[in-house]
Simulated scan of single mutants.
Amino acid sequence: MQPRLSICIATLNRGAFIGETLDTIVSQLRDDVELLIVDGASKDNTGEIVGKYAAADPRVRYVRLPVNSGVDRDYDIAVSHAQGEFCWLMTDDDLLKPGAIDRVVEALGDDVDLVVVNTEVRTVDFGGALRDTLVAAGADSTYAPEDADSLLVDAAHALSFIGCVVIRRSFWLARDRAAYYGSLFIHVGVIFQAQTPRTRVIAAPMITIRYGNAMWTPRGFEIWMFKWPSLVWSFDSVSSKAKARISAREPWRQLRKLWLYRSIGGYARDEYDRYLAERPMSAFKRVVSRAIAVVPATFANGMSSLYCGLFARHARMNIYDLSRSPHATFVSRAVARSAGY
Rank of each mutant, 00 (worst) to 15 (best):
L5Q: 05
L5H: 11
A10T: 02
A10Y: 02
D32N: 15
V38D: 00
S42T: 05
D44V: 03
V60M: 01
V71Y: 00
R73D: 13
R73G: 09
H81E: 13
E85A: 14
T91R: 08
D92H: 01
P98M: 06
R103G: 03
L114W: 09
V121K: 04
R122D: 02
G138E: 12
A139M: 07
D140C: 08
P145C: 08
L152T: 09
A155G: 11
L159H: 07
V166Q: 11
S170H: 05
S170D: 14
D176G: 03
A179C: 03
I186H: 02
R198Q: 12
R200F: 08
N213F: 12
G220W: 00
G220K: 06
I223R: 06
I223V: 14
P229C: 01
V238W: 10
R249F: 02
W252C: 02
K257F: 05
S263W: 03
Y267F: 08
Y275H: 14
A277S: 13
P280V: 06
F284I: 11
R286Y: 09
S289L: 02
I292T: 00
V295C: 03
V295Q: 00
V295H: 04
A300W: 00
S305P: 13
C308K: 12
F311M: 08
A312G: 14
R313E: 04
H314R: 12
N318F: 01
R324M: 14
S325E: 10
A334R: 13
A336G: 14
A336L: 05
S338T: 13
